[in-house]
């Protein structure tokens, strides 16, 4: 099949956009979970991903937590346990750390702020973000680390070959993006099954719908908060792994949260499918816009395209594509 070059390049760009959109969606998902259940916009979601990634790398490579601090206080030099754990073990251990973190957050912060207006809770999560950022630094050091959990990277052979034989031009698609897509699909399926069919999932939906009613049927809000933050912590871990593998584990990882914002404005803050579709639209839109319009305006449009799109949505459809329509009661 002979297609014009421009079309082929555009298709390649769109495909890659689709896949990086999945990466955005992964981050947005964490926000949606907490917002839906408790109406809290968790500013710390991005830092949680960074913290999870740092912890994962640290545990996997046998780094001693707080090594610099211990050295400064006691003079003891102790930088490594001298092991390298299998990725699966390190992921499970990090998952446990994230659950522990959820419990601490509930006990130290959320418990004391029940019935406070959302803005107060939002401010609290800003504090949490800075605290976690510092904690991650102190525990694991601030050097850039490589995430190596055995995810495949580099050109995806079969896509290259099949497109080559089809169009005479091989698309370049990073294997990592394919993995991200599979992981995201599994994650969303698991979350959906959990929320629809498990006892805790039903309790979670109940709390998201009406606190008072949930209490009256015997649901403990504290348990639900720990559960929600644990799940959000786990989603942050997944996002941290994928983004860490893509661009290294370093402070800028926490800024992926910024990319989640436009995704949320498109998809709505309360919709899991919305987070996915929003991510995909932004991923594809970004690539295509750069491809067609970028050259005319000097490039680098992906730095702002998502935000302008989000702004348009804010003006014309503030509840997002899938969010519940906001009808003010009078």
């Amino acid at each position: 099949m002979v297609l014009p070059d421009t079309l082929l390049f555009a298709m390649e760009a769109a495909l890659n956009g689709l896949l990086s959109g999945v990466m955005y969606a992964l981050v947005a998902l964490g926000f949606v979970l907490i917002f839906k259940a408790s109406g809290i916009f968790n500013y710390a979601q991005g830092v949680m991903a960074l913290f999870a990634a740092l912890t994962l790398v640290g545990i996997q490579q046998g780094q001693v937590p707080f090594a610099d601090l211990i050295h400064a206080l006691t003079g003891v030099e102790m930088h490594g346990f001298g092991w390298t754990l299998p990725a699966v073990v390190a992921i499970v251990l990090t998952g446990i750390v994230m659950i522990g973190m959820a419990m601490v957050i509930e006990t130290l912060i959320l418990k004391h702020l029940v019935n406070q207006p959302p803005i107060i809770l939002f401010m609290a999560t800003i504090g949490l973000a800075y605290f976690l950022e510092g904690l991650g630094d102190t525990m694991w050091g601030s050097d850039i680390k490589a995430m190596d959990v055995g995810l495949p990277q580099g050109i995806t052979g079969w896509i290259d070959e099949s497109t080559n034989s089809l169009f005479g031009y091989g698309f370049y698609v990073d294997q990592l993006n394919i993995v991200a897509m599979v992981v995201a699909a599994i994650l969303v399926t698991a979350l959906t099954l959990f929320s629809q069919y498990s006892k805790q999932g039903r309790a979670l939906r109940a709390v998201a719908d009406d606190h008072q009613a949930a209490l009256s049927v015997g649901i403990s809000l504290r348990f639900i908060w720990v559960l929600v933050w644990s799940i959000a912590g786990f989603v942050a871990l997944v996002a941290g792994i994928m983004w860490g593998a893509k661009s290294g584990v370093q402070f800028s990882l926490s800024l992926i949260a910024l990319k989640a914002l436009p995704v949320l404005m498109l998809g709505g803050f309360t919709s899991i499918p919305g987070a996915i579709v929003g991510g995909l639209i932004i991923g594809v839109g970004e690539q295509l816009f750069e491809f067609f319009v970028g050259p005319l305006v000097g490039g680098a449009t992906e730095n702002w395209f998502a935000y302008v799109l989000a702004l348009l949505f804010l003006v014309f459809r503030p509840q997002g594509l899938f969010g519940e329509k906001i009808i003010e009661r009078v």
Partner: peptide, 13 residues
């Protein structure tokens, strides 16, 4: 178990 004067149900379910 109880009900509420102003009805507290899970509207989305």
């Amino acid at each position: 178990a109880r009900t509420f004067q102003n009805i507290a149900l899970f509207d989305g379910m």
